[in-house]
Amino acid sequence: MKGKLMAHLVASYPNYDSSLAIVEALVRGGATMIEIQFPFSDPTADGPVIQDACRRALDGGFRVDDGFRLVKEAALLAPVFIMSYGNIVFSRGIEDFVAASKDAGALGLIIADLTPGYDGGLYRAGRSAGMEIIPVVVPTVTDKRLEEITSIHPAYIYAAMRVGITGKRTDFGKESIAFLGRLATTGARILAGFGISSGEQVALLGDAAYSPVVGSAFVREIAKGGDYLERITALTAGLVSG
């Protein structure tokens, strides 16, 4: 049976029309959820591959409204989550951003640097608008912190499978599975990401999490240029079939 896969892309990279075609290519290959990153000038949680894609999208004139337009179109094809940074949300106004996400049909928001307790009101705004706000949890999380996070009853939790930033390969061992085991007790749907680029990893995570998340591997493929749409579809198909 084919597993779930959340596939990530950077909005307006390499340009708006292509990013819509990329969503289609991902869904064609078997992606079951789409994570659309709204570029920010200073993406501190991202490695060089995604940083570069964000830079290029911004140089190409990306505006936050373009991001919502893309979400609206993508949401017709698959469930969509928006990923970005606090300043993008805050500058728009947290409630406005949540409302615009809802209007565009997004299912949830992953905002890397607005965490429970330091969220500037994001979780409250999400609750009142019926928008899922998805906290990130890391393997070094303490029990106390995990309790704080689960006390807000998130429907989804994004599990970063190692410390550090996006893009570097993660080696999965017993510890990774134990980490996912800890998270499973929370009752939330676990989205597991960071450093996942092979079918083997996806298969392994497919059993232990709600869905694996693959990001930099696709962005890297796009950066190589040429007929990347076909390659992305093939890569996605390979990932979901293990």
């Binding site: 949680a45 890397a112 640097d113 965490t115 330091y118 890391v138 070094t140 303490t142």
Partner: peptide, 11 residues
């Protein structure tokens, strides 16, 4: 002020 960082930097 505040401490608006990705979760990994909280520890």
């Amino acid at each position: 002020g505040g401490r608006y960082v990705p979760e990994v930097l909280r520890t």
